[in-house]
């Protein structure tokens, strides 16, 4: 399987596979659009569409949350369209995605690719193949054992093991091109950080 971006959600990975199959070029989360500024002109809200299809100059946002939970996304999309009227963007809902899977005879994997079920967990890759179950979250004991083994390996190699909290300055700031497996919550936090680094709204 070729290496690509780490998708935040299984539905995004499946859609990318469909695009690949039909040889449609795509880019994952290529741009962040500021959509709200505070009185000081600092960006406080932004929107990063999931896909860009360069051949069609079309942005695509895929949301597989329940229809009742997409109100916030709809509002952001309306705002985006107001601010960037020339931007072509399409919102693909859970029902659209399920219809796509139905069309391709893959409705059996719909449940595992929509909603919270299909969401990537921090540090855990999405299944390599569509329909494959997500890996089970490691238990606390397994994590403790893993940490113990790592510490033992580090001791053996005479590498100092950091103790206590890692200073914030040592954590690299996310960039627009960073691709890390993350949940929607962390994506929002990342967007806020990104938005803060964006230029102020032109007067």
């Amino acid at each position: 399987m070729p290496s690509g971006p780490n998708f935040a959600h299984g539905s995004e990975a499946e859609l990318a596979r469909i695009f690949d199959f039909y040889q449609v070029r795509w880019v994952y989360e290529p741009r962040t659009f500021p959509i709200l500024w505070n009185l000081d002109g600092v960006v406080v809200e932004s929107f990063s569409p999931d896909f860009y299809l360069p051949d069609f100059e079309l942005y695509l946002e895929l949301t597989t949350l329940k229809q009742t939970l997409v109100r916030k996304k709809n509002r952001k999309l309306r705002r985006l369209r107001e601010l960037y009227p020339d931007l072509r963007i399409k919102l693909f809902y859970a029902k659209d995605f399920k219809a796509l899977l139905l069309k391709y005879g893959r409705i059996d994997v719909a449940a595992s690719l929509t909603g919270l079920e299909g969401q990537a967990r921090p540090g855990e890759p999405l299944p390599a193949r569509p329909g494959e179950p997500l890996p089970a979250r490691p238990s606390a004991q397994a994590l403790a054992l893993r940490a113990e083994r790592l510490a033992a390996t580090a001791r053996a190699a005479a590498v100092p093991v950091p103790t206590g909290e890692i200073p914030a300055t040592t954590i690299p700031a996310p960039t627009a091109t960073s691709r890390v497996a993350r949940g929607r919550g962390s994506r929002r936090r990342r967007n806020r950080r990104l938005a803060a680094s964006l230029p102020a709204r032109p007067a």
């Binding site: 449609v24 299809l53 051949d55 069609f56 079309l58 695509l60 399409k90 693909f92 659209d96």
Partner: peptide
């Protein structure tokens, strides 16, 4: 079925 269109 234009509602499902992904590519124009």
């Amino acid at each position: 079925k234009p509602a499902r269109r992904l590519v124009e």
